[in-house]
Nucleic acid binder design. Structure first.
Lengths: 334, 334
DNA sequence: TTGAAAGCGTTACCAG
DNA sequence: CTGGTAACGCTTTCAA
């Protein structure tokens, strides 16, 4: 009793045509209740599974959304990075609630069309981009011709593409202000200094210091973002410093954790001697030693917003971008 | 200058037939170097993107692997659980190295054919199952007729399906032995007590105690596995205990973290008053307070093994199951 | 209510 | 080396 491999076989066994089976199984279209019932039970009994590729192709709809992570320069394994993990988990959950699957692809931006090529390959109904890396131009260009795309990341004035993300400048200010309020006298920033996200965070930090009349003061330690090398990076940067800061704004939670470890290696206690604040609000920030003070981007909420907007855009509706209020979560690293 | 939406349009513009374009672009088949060059550059210029659905359908190959998480009883959001996150990240990385994408699906086991239906839908070339939950029978039955499937989880004697996982009994023994060696006098187990994975871990714990001549001693606190409720669960279970243990084997790292927090709430210090050991070896175990002693399943390595075996099975080759040596990682929670 | 046939976009076979 | 044609498995239109 082998399962029929296609609808025609099943139709034959049921003594009807393929079209009738299709209508019966899909529920759409008029079929006599009797034959419908008969076909459905037969399909069940025989374990018939329609070929979704064929259906998707015919219907031009896949019930699948692609998540793309532009790798920028670092072509190393990134999908196991805690930030992406967390995000993909939230996104997969939010999508599953709407009956969509998540296709996880590691794409290396080659030409200016990598998003469009992926999107138009027919495999996905829409695209979620996590992190703009250095691909802002491509994203913006793509958005002009391809509607169902939502980007996690910062917002730039006049942008055309739909983005969801926290107000990085406000978040950066918030972080610096917090350190100032805690009495830090030598504040430093450690993390990437470019890109619409990290750049804005840094801007915010500088602005907060300027407002406090301490604009000259910031020590900037530009670093990469690879989690694997983060600890070594941080250690090297801190060692090279002429004078040790007493407050560090880390560009992300992962960076902050590395910074704290590096400080530990250097024999410095957090938060007694140096205060460290992260950025992201990853769940694991709550678990680390010491629990991380951080700027929360509310990723779970953000993921839901992204999915909602994407579904709207897939339906052809226009959407605006969303700026999520970053929130200071005070824990024990400051 | 609109991109051609299908190969026929492109062929027309190039003044050749669709077949020739296909051969030129795929590189297979004989095409004169001159026309091949011409077609390739034209496709490039026009931004032609072949429809992968159609290709996949025709070739019966998708370069995509599905990851399924049987949810068992708990139909709550599970894909954002740290264990699955970690696993999916490693798997996605390992698959990407071989040119495969990962399709993340949350499937609720309905009937006895949910795996087969998913697998035979044509959307994936193979299936990775993470965690057997209470679906062992279905998995085993499916494996009889569907080859390209690899399961993360325990091994049962005489099983037919291909599994990769740590030796849970050995791991459980290792954990209990460690607590015994640390001088714990009242040992408890907290976690699920059934299923081929957790059950075996518990067995191992009991066996280690029996060997030490303390078989009667173990306090068992059966709990669920939902990370959301884990803390409340742990707190309730610990509170209900007539006498507080001084050593706890937690069924997973996530559970262990919850246990440690619950102990904190009860005013008990880890490891001074109670020692806690986890199971999994998640990266975040290194970061928590206190850093977690755990039984490491070497998930990154395990993910690679799973992918290797799956690729072999997709090629039709037979494979055996793999048992990964669990290893004690001693940190500061014991 | 049902059946036949025309696609969806691709690749593979078979002639020329 | 290239063009035409037949699949792949499904849905949907058009007739009956």
């Amino acid at each position: 009793m082998n399962s029929p491999t296609n609808i025609k076989q099943l139709a034959e066994m049921a003594g009807v045509s393929a079209g009738t089976v299709s209508r019966a199984l899909s529920g759409s279209g008029r079929v006599s209740p009797k034959t419908r019932e008969r076909i459905i039970t037969l399909a069940q009994k025989l374990g018939y599974q329609p070929n979704l590729l064929a259906r998707n192709m015919r219907m031009r709809k896949t019930s699948t959304v692609g998540m793309l992570v532009p790798l920028g320069h670092d072509d190393l394994q990134h999908l196991s990075d805690p930030f992406f993990n967390t995000m993909s988990g939230y996104l997969a959950d939010a999508l599953a609630d709407h009956g969509y699957d998540l296709l996880l692809s590691r794409v290396i931006p080659s030409d200016g069309r990598w998003i469009e090529n992926y999107a138009r390959s027919g495999r996905v109904d829409g695209v979620l981009i996590i992190g703009q890396s250095n691909q802002l131009a491509v994203i913006e260009a793509t958005s002009l011709g391809y509607h169902p795309m939502v980007v996690w990341g910062g917002q730039v004035p006049g942008q055309h593409h739909c983005s969801v993300g926290s107000d990085n400048r406000a978040g950066g200010m918030m972080a610096a202000r917090h350190l100032i309020e805690q009495g830090c006298r030598r504040i430093a920033y450690l993390g990437p200094v470019e890109g619409p996200e990290f750049g804005a965070r840094l801007d915010g930090v500088q602005q907060a210091l300027a407002i406090a009349g301490r604009g000259e003061e910031l020590q900037i330690m530009p670093s990469h973002c690879e989690p694997a090398a983060a600890y070594d990076d941080a250690l090297g940067l801190l060692r090279a410093l002429p004078v040790m800061p007493d407050g560090i704004v880390a560009a992300s939670d992962v960076t902050a954790i590395s910074v704290i470890r590096a400080l530990g290696t250097l024999g410095l206690r957090v938060p007694d001697q140096v205060k460290v604040i992260g950025y992201d609000g990853l769940p694991l920030g709550e678990l680390v030693t010491p629990p991380l003070t951080t700027i929360d981007q509310q990723l779970r909420h953000g993921a839901r917003v992204m999915v909602d907007l994407l579904l709207k855009r897939m339906a052809g509706e226009p959407t605006g971008s969303v700026l999520i209020d970053p929130q200071l979560i005070r824990r024990e690293s400051t």
